[in-house]
Amino acid sequence: MQGFAQEFTMAMGLILSGDPELWAIVLLSLRVSLMAVLIAAAIGMPMGAALAVGRFPGRRVAIVLLNALMGLPPVVVGLMVYLMLSRSGPLGVLELLYTPTAMIVAQVVLVTPIIAALTRQTVEMLDAEYAEQLRSLGVSRLASVPTLLWDGRVALLTALLAGFGRAIAEVGAVIMVGGNINHVTRVMTTTIALETSKGNLALALALGTILIGIAIGVTGTVSLLGARNGQQEMRHA
């Protein structure tokens, strides 16, 4: 117990002293995950909106598939991206394996279905409420999409935060395609795994504390946004 307290004190010291190695890892994690969420949003939001508003054969199957992809096992995603980016893979020529870009690709694959599925759910719910009124106002189905996305902005922000939460806490896929190379591809989760195995608990604990802080921050923001949205709905009812 005394050992743990000592390690924890050292971990706090690392955080508070602004240890450059620790904060470089944190910043890389944030850069990779934020970039991944941004790209996933650019793909997932239009995809989700199209599934919500569009009517085409196979739509139901696409929705079921999308929902299933939300639970993609990270190691399987890591394996797929590894095979695509490895020297003998179709994208091997790009030489992206073991770079932060490869980690972003893996996280995009993991996060896009989450954002797309939550966007679909949000837009479909709003569309059910708005469709007749928007048609009455002369707004076409296609032109209604920006309106639905804007009016669902709080729920969509929640979807982005959920995606970010998934990305920042992910370890299996990024360690496979990033390789956990010091000063290059070492992010919080992979460093925690490595340093714990080496017995360097202070750095692992410091990163773990920051990661938990980020998770609490994301969850808290999602809850606050949800509560605010709910209050507005209640007032309307």
Partner: peptide
């Protein structure tokens, strides 16, 4: 475009 409709439950944008 020359008509408008108001529904039983008002549908207001957020």
């Amino acid at each position: 475009r020359r008509q408008a409709m108001v529904f039983q439950t008002p549908v207001l944008l957020r």
